[in-house]
Every structure is written in C-alpha cells, then in structure tokens.
C-alpha cells in the first residue's frame, strides 16, 4: 500500500535534516505503528506524506499503491486515498463541520471521476457514523473544531476518516490529550475501519494506544531513521525500558 524508500527530508527554512533515510513498507490490511522519542521525526514523516509546506525532500521516494505521492498536491494525495488524522486538528471559524465534510467528500469523489453524494444521502451517512463515535448533532452543526474539547477534536478526525474512507490512514499522536475513555472510543472507531483493503500507520509516543489498536508491526524511529522493527512485543519493551536501551543497542 505505502512504500517509503530512503526518504531524506530537510526543513526548508533552516536547512536542517529531519528524516535521514526512512525505509518503510505498509501492506494493505495491516496496522503499523511508529514509536520514538521526541524530535525523532515521527510527525515530520506524517506531514511530508500529507504534503504540508515547509519541507524539502532531498532524496528518496514515497509511493501509494505504486503512485509517487511526493509530487502531488495535498488534495491530490487525499483523493488518491491518503488520510492524516492531525495531532492538532485545526479550528476553522465560520466553516460548518457538515459543510466542510461534504465539500471534502464531494471534492474527492469528483477528483476520482465519481458522482457527488446527494445532501440527503450524506446526512444519513454522517448520522450513522457520528452515532458510533458519540458525536452529537451540535458538534456537527458547529464550525470545524471550534470550541471542541481535545477529545471531541480527535473524535471529529476519526469521523472524517470514517466518512472519507481512505485506503491509507496515518494517525499522528491521536492519543495525545485524551483521557482513557476518549481513547477507547477513538480506538473503537479506528478498529471498526480496519479491513483487508485499508492500511494504518499509527504514530505514538506511548504504548497505551496500542493496547486498544493492536498493531501488526512496530517500528522504532530515532533521529530520522527507523532503527528497529518488530512485533507488538517491541512496544511493550519500550514501555518497560524506555528508548534508552534501544538507542544504546543501535548506536
């Protein structure tokens, strides 16, 4: 599904290397997790894959189902099936949540040559998905993420994911700022979307989210590289011993 090879990335303004040769292959139907200490480049990887400004790819490639996504605009990547659940979902005063989601879904469908969804079908779709995520009508009516609590913002991200039905979902520290109940709810939303044709890349600091979203593969990222990969037990090792042991081991 997602094939990253030797990815090197610098900050455009500071001439500072962040990713120093990332290799990663995520297969359809699988959940991969990336863990790592602060500043290791985890979030940068998610931004570069989604097309955020300010980063320069100096080497390497990233392919989504065989297509090079690094040359695409963010909206083209989204239409191709890539979705990034933001660590800090952006507040957009004045733009209604429903309007935004419908505009996004129809823009993606249009880009793929599909028909737009009707207003009534969209309403049915949103209502069904929102109920599962315990998102009430008021949150749907409000401007995007404005006045939402941390937990509501993350649930709103998962709602958008459920509606847009992407192939490749990247979750950037979706657990940050969530209490245990909210995390369970978000994890259930993600688990409901797991399927043969869909892959996940879960970026997190802590193992606790991975108790709820069980990964198939765990990667440890340190200083812009993936230094170790393994099964779910790797996450538990990190939880027990921290990153120091692994960093010492690969140094």
């Amino acid at each position: 599904m997602l094939e990253i090879k030797n990815l090197h990335v610098e900050l455009e303004e500071e001439d500072k290397a962040i990713l120093k040769g990332v290799d990663l292959s995520v297969e359809a139907g699988r959940v991969h997790a990336i863990m790592g200490p602060n500043g290791s480049g985890k979030s940068t990887l998610s931004y570069v894959l989604s097309g955020r400004d300010g980063y320069e790819v100096t080497d390497g490639s990233a392919m989504l189902e065989g297509d090079d996504i690094l040359g695409m605009e963010p909206e083209e990547r989204a239409a191709a099936g890539l979705f990034l659940a933001f660590q800090y979902p952006v507040e957009i005063p004045g733009v209604g949540n429903m309007t935004f989601m419908r505009t996004a879904l129809n823009a993606q469908r249009k880009a793929r040559g599909e028909d737009e969804i009707s207003a009534s079908d969209f309403l049915k779709l949103v209502r069904a998905k929102a109920t599962e995520l315990q998102i009430d009508a008021d949150m749907l009516k409000r401007p995007v993420n404005v006045g939402f609590s941390g937990g509501e913002k993350k649930r709103n991200e998962i709602l958008q994911m459920a509606i847009l039905e992407p192939k490749m979902c990247i979750l950037d520290e979706t657990d940050s700022g969530l209490d245990v109940d909210a995390m369970k709810l978000v994890a259930e939303g993600v688990n409901a979307l797991r399927s043969q044709g869909r892959a996940f890349l879960v970026i997190t600091h802590y193992q606790r989210l991975l108790d709820h979203i069980k990964p198939d593969v765990v990667h440890i990222m340190v200083d812009g590289r993936i230094v170790k990969s393994g099964g779910p037990e790797l996450a538990q090792e990190v939880e027990k011993n921290g990153y120091a042991d692994i960093m010492a081991e690969v140094a």
Binding site: P74, R77, A79, F86, V95, T99, A104, A111, P143
Partner: peptide, 22 residues
C-alpha cells in the same frame, strides 16, 4: 486552515473560497 482542508481533499481554490466566506 488551508492545509487542513486540502489534506482532506478540498482543492486550494475551493478551500480559499470557504475561508473567504467564513
């Protein structure tokens, strides 16, 4: 906000219009 909307698939011109109306 523009990046967020584009990352969800809304093309830049449409996203700009929505933010302008907002």
């Amino acid at each position: 906000a523009l990046y967020y909307m584009r990352a969800r698939g809304v093309p830049r011109p449409e996203a700009t219009d929505l933010l302008t109306l907002a």
